[in-house]
Protein backbone atom coordinates (compact mmCIF):
# COMPACT_ATOMS: atom_id res chain seq x y z
CA UNK A 1 0.00 0.00 0.00
CA UNK A 2 2.69 2.43 1.04
CA UNK A 3 4.82 1.42 -1.90
CA UNK A 4 1.91 2.01 -4.23
CA UNK A 5 1.20 5.48 -2.91
CA UNK A 6 4.83 6.43 -3.24
CA UNK A 7 4.80 5.25 -6.82
CA UNK A 8 1.68 7.25 -7.46
CA UNK A 9 3.16 10.41 -5.97
CA UNK A 10 6.29 9.92 -8.09
CA UNK A 11 4.11 9.60 -11.16
CA UNK A 12 2.25 12.78 -10.27
CA UNK A 13 5.56 14.60 -9.86
CA UNK A 14 6.68 13.37 -13.23
CA UNK A 15 3.41 14.45 -14.81
CA UNK A 16 3.77 17.89 -13.27
CA UNK A 17 7.30 18.20 -14.61
CA UNK A 18 6.29 16.99 -18.03
CA UNK A 19 5.44 20.40 -19.60
CA UNK A 20 8.79 21.84 -18.56
CA UNK A 21 10.68 18.80 -19.77
CA UNK A 22 8.75 18.80 -23.04
CA UNK A 23 9.70 22.43 -23.54
CA UNK A 24 13.31 21.68 -22.75
CA UNK A 25 13.59 18.72 -25.10
CA UNK A 26 11.46 20.18 -27.87
CA UNK A 27 12.89 23.67 -27.94
CA UNK A 28 16.44 23.17 -26.78
CA UNK A 29 17.71 19.61 -26.86
CA UNK A 30 16.14 18.57 -30.16
CA UNK A 31 17.23 21.78 -31.96
CA UNK A 32 20.75 21.29 -30.64
CA UNK A 33 20.75 17.74 -32.00
CA UNK A 34 19.37 18.92 -35.34
CA UNK A 35 22.14 21.51 -35.55
CA UNK A 36 24.73 18.88 -34.57
CA UNK A 37 23.55 16.47 -37.28
CA UNK A 38 23.34 19.30 -39.79
CA UNK A 39 26.92 20.32 -39.04
CA UNK A 40 28.06 16.80 -39.95
CA UNK A 41 26.24 16.70 -43.30
CA UNK A 42 27.71 17.96 -46.56
CA UNK A 43 26.29 21.40 -47.40
CA UNK A 44 22.74 21.25 -48.71
CA UNK A 45 22.38 17.45 -48.50
CA UNK A 46 20.37 15.22 -46.25
CA UNK A 47 22.62 12.16 -46.38
CA UNK A 48 26.27 11.43 -45.81
CA UNK A 49 28.61 12.33 -43.00
CA UNK A 50 31.54 14.70 -43.08
CA UNK A 51 33.77 16.67 -40.76
CA UNK A 52 34.56 19.07 -43.57
CA UNK A 53 32.89 22.12 -42.03
CA UNK A 54 34.79 21.87 -38.76
CA UNK A 55 38.08 21.23 -40.54
CA UNK A 56 37.56 24.01 -43.03
CA UNK A 57 36.60 26.56 -40.41
CA UNK A 58 39.31 25.66 -37.91
CA UNK A 59 42.07 25.52 -40.52
CA UNK A 60 41.45 29.09 -41.60
CA UNK A 61 43.90 31.44 -39.91
CA UNK A 62 40.96 33.82 -39.51
CA UNK A 63 39.08 31.27 -37.41
CA UNK A 64 41.60 31.51 -34.60
CA UNK A 65 41.24 35.26 -34.75
CA UNK A 66 37.47 34.94 -34.42
CA UNK A 67 37.69 32.60 -31.44
CA UNK A 68 40.35 34.69 -29.72
CA UNK A 69 38.30 37.83 -30.33
CA UNK A 70 35.22 36.22 -28.80
CA UNK A 71 37.17 35.25 -25.70
CA UNK A 72 39.00 38.57 -25.42
CA UNK A 73 35.75 40.51 -25.61
CA UNK A 74 33.84 38.37 -23.15
CA UNK A 75 36.67 37.99 -20.63
CA UNK A 76 37.55 41.69 -20.70
CA UNK A 77 33.89 42.58 -20.30
CA UNK A 78 33.69 40.22 -17.33
CA UNK A 79 36.75 41.77 -15.69
CA UNK A 80 35.47 45.29 -16.34
CA UNK A 81 32.08 44.49 -14.88
CA UNK A 82 33.71 43.11 -11.73
CA UNK A 83 35.80 46.27 -11.46
CA UNK A 84 32.67 48.38 -11.83
CA UNK A 85 30.34 46.26 -9.72
CA UNK A 86 32.40 45.86 -6.56
CA UNK A 87 32.82 49.58 -5.76
CA UNK A 88 29.30 50.28 -6.93
CA UNK A 89 27.71 47.68 -4.70
CA UNK A 90 29.88 48.65 -1.73
CA UNK A 91 28.59 52.19 -2.14
CA UNK A 92 24.98 51.18 -2.69
CA UNK A 93 25.04 49.00 0.37
CA UNK A 94 25.44 52.05 2.59
CA UNK A 95 21.85 53.05 1.75
CA UNK A 96 22.72 56.62 0.88
CA UNK A 97 19.96 59.01 -0.02
CA UNK A 98 18.56 58.03 -3.39
CA UNK A 99 20.04 54.57 -3.38
CA UNK A 100 16.77 53.12 -4.67
CA UNK A 101 17.14 55.18 -7.81
CA UNK A 102 20.68 53.95 -8.43
CA UNK A 103 19.60 50.38 -7.77
CA UNK A 104 16.99 50.74 -10.44
CA UNK A 105 19.51 52.37 -12.75
CA UNK A 106 21.63 49.27 -12.39
CA UNK A 107 18.86 47.19 -13.93
CA UNK A 108 18.11 49.43 -16.89
CA UNK A 109 20.59 47.84 -19.34
CA UNK A 110 18.96 44.47 -18.76
CA UNK A 111 15.39 45.47 -19.53
CA UNK A 112 15.97 47.37 -22.75
CA UNK A 113 16.83 45.56 -25.98
CA UNK A 114 20.59 45.32 -26.54
CA UNK A 115 20.09 46.83 -29.95
CA UNK A 116 18.84 50.10 -28.52
CA UNK A 117 21.61 50.25 -25.95
CA UNK A 118 24.11 49.79 -28.74
CA UNK A 119 22.49 52.49 -30.83
CA UNK A 120 22.59 54.95 -27.95
CA UNK A 121 26.19 54.11 -27.12
CA UNK A 122 27.20 54.52 -30.76
CA UNK A 123 25.60 57.97 -30.74
CA UNK A 124 27.17 58.88 -27.40
CA UNK A 125 30.70 57.77 -28.24
CA UNK A 126 30.66 58.73 -31.91
CA UNK A 127 33.03 61.34 -33.26
CA UNK A 128 30.26 63.93 -32.79
CA UNK A 129 28.88 62.44 -29.60
CA UNK A 130 28.91 64.16 -26.25
CA UNK A 131 31.88 62.18 -24.94
CA UNK A 132 34.10 63.40 -27.73
CA UNK A 133 32.73 66.93 -27.48
CA UNK A 134 33.57 66.94 -23.78
CA UNK A 135 37.06 65.62 -24.43
CA UNK A 136 37.71 68.17 -27.18
CA UNK A 137 36.42 70.99 -25.07
CA UNK A 138 37.95 70.26 -21.71
CA UNK A 139 41.02 68.06 -22.16
CA UNK A 140 43.92 70.19 -23.40
CA UNK A 141 45.85 67.59 -25.40
CA UNK A 142 43.03 66.21 -27.47
CA UNK A 143 42.40 67.95 -30.76
CA UNK A 144 41.01 65.07 -32.78
CA UNK A 145 37.92 63.07 -31.84
CA UNK A 146 38.89 59.85 -30.09
CA UNK A 147 37.73 56.85 -32.08
CA UNK A 148 35.68 54.56 -29.86
CA UNK A 149 33.03 53.05 -32.10
CA UNK A 150 33.96 49.97 -34.06
CA UNK A 151 37.15 49.40 -32.04
CA UNK A 152 37.92 46.67 -29.52
CA UNK A 153 38.06 48.97 -26.45
CA UNK A 154 34.75 50.47 -27.54
CA UNK A 155 33.21 47.02 -27.92
CA UNK A 156 34.44 46.01 -24.47
CA UNK A 157 32.86 49.15 -23.05
CA UNK A 158 29.57 48.39 -24.81
CA UNK A 159 29.60 44.80 -23.60
CA UNK A 160 30.28 45.96 -20.06
CA UNK A 161 27.45 48.46 -20.26
CA UNK A 162 25.02 45.79 -21.34
CA UNK A 163 26.11 42.86 -19.20
CA UNK A 164 27.48 44.20 -15.89
CA UNK A 165 24.07 44.06 -14.14
CA UNK A 166 24.43 40.30 -13.72
CA UNK A 167 27.62 40.75 -11.70
CA UNK A 168 26.38 43.82 -9.84
CA UNK A 169 23.04 42.32 -8.84
CA UNK A 170 24.53 39.05 -7.62
CA UNK A 171 27.29 40.86 -5.72
CA UNK A 172 24.81 43.23 -4.13
CA UNK A 173 22.55 40.45 -2.93
CA UNK A 174 25.54 38.58 -1.45
CA UNK A 175 26.74 41.76 0.20
CA UNK A 176 23.37 42.42 1.77
CA UNK A 177 23.09 38.95 3.22
CA UNK A 178 26.49 39.41 4.88
CA UNK A 179 26.42 39.31 8.67
CA UNK A 180 27.45 42.77 9.96
CA UNK A 181 28.74 41.12 13.14
CA UNK A 182 31.74 39.81 11.22
CA UNK A 183 32.80 43.29 10.17
CA UNK A 184 32.16 44.65 13.64
CA UNK A 185 34.29 41.90 15.10
CA UNK A 186 37.12 42.78 12.73
CA UNK A 187 36.78 46.47 13.51
CA UNK A 188 36.73 45.82 17.24
CA UNK A 189 39.86 43.71 16.87
CA UNK A 190 41.58 46.83 15.57
CA UNK A 191 41.38 46.49 11.81
CA UNK A 192 40.95 49.76 9.95
CA UNK A 193 38.31 50.20 7.30
CA UNK A 194 40.60 49.20 4.46
CA UNK A 195 41.74 46.05 6.27
CA UNK A 196 38.15 45.09 7.03
CA UNK A 197 37.31 45.50 3.39
CA UNK A 198 40.38 43.68 2.13
CA UNK A 199 40.47 40.77 4.56
CA UNK A 200 36.85 40.31 5.61
CA UNK A 201 34.31 41.72 3.20
CA UNK A 202 35.91 40.91 -0.15
CA UNK A 203 36.74 37.28 0.67
CA UNK A 204 33.22 36.77 2.01
CA UNK A 205 31.47 38.14 -1.05
CA UNK A 206 33.86 36.42 -3.46
CA UNK A 207 31.43 33.54 -4.20
CA UNK A 208 28.76 36.07 -5.15
CA UNK A 209 31.15 38.01 -7.37
CA UNK A 210 32.23 34.82 -9.11
CA UNK A 211 28.70 33.55 -9.64
CA UNK A 212 27.72 36.91 -11.09
CA UNK A 213 30.78 37.06 -13.29
CA UNK A 214 29.91 33.65 -14.72
CA UNK A 215 26.52 35.04 -15.72
CA UNK A 216 28.16 38.08 -17.28
CA UNK A 217 30.62 35.89 -19.12
CA UNK A 218 27.92 33.63 -20.51
CA UNK A 219 25.88 36.56 -21.74
CA UNK A 220 28.92 38.29 -23.24
CA UNK A 221 30.13 35.13 -24.94
CA UNK A 222 26.81 34.70 -26.68
CA UNK A 223 26.35 38.43 -27.34
CA UNK A 224 24.80 38.95 -30.70
CA UNK A 225 23.03 42.26 -31.16
CA UNK A 226 25.89 44.48 -29.98
CA UNK A 227 28.64 43.07 -32.21
CA UNK A 228 26.15 42.80 -35.06
CA UNK A 229 25.54 46.52 -35.24
CA UNK A 230 28.48 47.99 -33.31
CA UNK A 231 31.20 45.51 -34.23
CA UNK A 232 32.17 46.89 -37.61
CA UNK A 233 34.92 44.63 -38.88
CA UNK A 234 35.23 42.74 -35.63
CA UNK A 235 33.02 39.69 -35.81
CA UNK A 236 32.85 37.33 -32.86
CA UNK A 237 31.53 33.80 -33.30
CA UNK A 238 27.84 34.68 -33.01
CA UNK A 239 28.01 37.19 -35.86
CA UNK A 240 30.14 34.76 -37.86
CA UNK A 241 27.35 32.17 -37.49
CA UNK A 242 24.71 34.64 -38.58
CA UNK A 243 26.78 35.62 -41.63
CA UNK A 244 26.84 32.03 -42.80
CA UNK A 245 23.05 31.77 -42.95
CA UNK A 246 22.80 35.16 -44.61
CA UNK A 247 24.63 33.94 -47.70
CA UNK A 248 22.50 32.86 -50.65
CA UNK A 249 22.14 29.93 -50.59
CA UNK A 250 22.33 29.84 -46.82
CA UNK A 251 25.20 27.73 -45.49
CA UNK A 252 23.30 25.94 -42.75
CA UNK A 253 25.90 23.23 -42.25
CA UNK A 254 28.79 25.67 -41.93
CA UNK A 255 26.74 27.79 -39.54
CA UNK A 256 25.80 24.75 -37.47
CA UNK A 257 29.42 23.65 -37.24
CA UNK A 258 30.37 27.07 -35.90
CA UNK A 259 27.47 26.98 -33.46
CA UNK A 260 28.64 23.62 -32.15
CA UNK A 261 32.17 24.94 -31.73
CA UNK A 262 30.77 27.93 -29.89
CA UNK A 263 28.62 25.86 -27.53
CA UNK A 264 31.51 23.46 -26.93
CA UNK A 265 33.95 26.27 -26.14
CA UNK A 266 31.52 27.88 -23.75
CA UNK A 267 30.74 24.70 -21.86
CA UNK A 268 34.44 23.80 -21.74
CA UNK A 269 35.47 27.22 -20.48
CA UNK A 270 32.75 27.28 -17.85
CA UNK A 271 33.71 23.83 -16.61
CA UNK A 272 37.32 24.89 -16.16
CA UNK A 273 36.28 28.19 -14.62
CA UNK A 274 34.03 26.55 -12.05
CA UNK A 275 36.65 23.92 -11.22
CA UNK A 276 39.41 26.45 -10.71
CA UNK A 277 37.48 29.14 -8.93
CA UNK A 278 34.77 27.36 -7.03
CA UNK A 279 35.45 27.54 -3.35
CA UNK A 280 34.56 24.78 -0.96
CA UNK A 281 32.39 27.23 0.94
CA UNK A 282 29.87 27.63 -1.85
Amino acid sequence: MKHGSRLRSGLVTLLLMLPGLAGFFGLFFYPMMVALVRSLRPEGQRVGWTLEHYVRFLSQPRAQGVIVLTFVLSISATVCSILLSVPLTLVLRQKLRGHRFFRLTMLVPRVVPGLIGALGLLLLFGSRGWVNLTLLQFVPFIHEPVRMNYTIPGLILFYTWLYFPFTAVTTLSTLESLDPALEEAAAVSGANRWQVLRHVVIPLIMPGILAGSVLTFMAAFGAFSIPLIAGGNYRPLSVEIYRQINFTPARWSAASARAMIMAGLQVGYLTIYMRVLRRPST
Partner: peptide, 30 residues
Protein backbone atom coordinates in the same frame (compact mmCIF):
# COMPACT_ATOMS: atom_id res chain seq x y z
CA UNK B 1 7.58 18.04 -4.38
CA UNK B 2 10.46 15.74 -3.64
CA UNK B 3 12.45 15.16 -6.80
CA UNK B 4 15.54 12.99 -6.71
CA UNK B 5 18.45 14.98 -8.10
CA UNK B 6 16.47 18.24 -8.07
CA UNK B 7 19.53 20.46 -8.56
CA UNK B 8 20.51 18.53 -11.65
CA UNK B 9 17.04 18.75 -13.18
CA UNK B 10 16.91 22.45 -12.42
CA UNK B 11 20.25 23.17 -14.07
CA UNK B 12 19.05 21.16 -17.05
CA UNK B 13 15.90 23.29 -17.32
CA UNK B 14 18.09 26.41 -17.08
CA UNK B 15 20.55 25.21 -19.72
CA UNK B 16 18.91 27.25 -22.51
CA UNK B 17 19.95 30.35 -20.60
CA UNK B 18 23.59 29.22 -20.56
CA UNK B 19 24.08 28.25 -24.19
CA UNK B 20 24.06 31.22 -26.60
CA UNK B 21 20.58 31.51 -28.15
CA UNK B 22 22.05 31.71 -31.62
CA UNK B 23 23.39 28.14 -31.25
CA UNK B 24 20.02 26.49 -30.70
CA UNK B 25 18.25 29.19 -32.69
CA UNK B 26 19.88 27.60 -35.73
CA UNK B 27 18.33 24.24 -34.93
CA UNK B 28 14.98 25.84 -34.11
CA UNK B 29 14.99 27.62 -37.47
CA UNK B 30 15.74 24.39 -39.36
Amino acid sequence: RRIPGKELWMSMILLPRMIPPIAYGLGVAQ
